[in-house]
Amino acid sequence: MKIPDVLETLRHLPFVKNFEPDQIEKLAVLAHEGRFERDQIIFREGDASSFFYLIVSGKVALEVTALGRTLRVQTLGDGEALGWSSLLVSEGKHFQARALTAVRALVFDGARLREACEQDPAFGYRLMRAVFEVLAQRLQAMRIQLLDLYSPASARA
């Protein structure tokens, strides 16, 4: 996938809605296209993989193995970000990611993204703010999930 095509794809993703045009171009230069088949593991829990993904199309499940079984705890779809921990100097991935359908994504190397952020603080601020929005939404969703809303505890009749 050539840079103009990446740029065109990137422009349509909600992740960059607050980016300036030159910042989107900078991001496009750092991206390459990734394709994953249905059921393919994109990364495993604990992997040192440093990639950050923006899903262009398809569906990805985040899975965690606990008590001897694997649970799907979240699914991500078109336009959503995956692998945000690669933007930190991280010891590894927190969840396993599996393609539930054929997935097309823009793939970024976390180390190169961090380097670009250091060199251009305005770009870094924009990128981190976009990631922060993603994290805030996920945290909010996770808090609601933790409430275990549908448990029968509140109904007693």
């Binding site: 499940a61 079984r69 799907r72 699914t75 779809g77 969703a141 609601i144």
Partner: peptide, 21 residues
């Protein structure tokens, strides 16, 4: 669903996450 096993291929997340679709 709030959580699913490997046989569930549908959406996982709280109901408000469905609004984007």
């Amino acid at each position: 669903v709030d959580y699913g096993g490997l046989s569930w291929r549908g959406h996982v997340g709280v109901v408000t996450t469905l609004f984007r679709y």
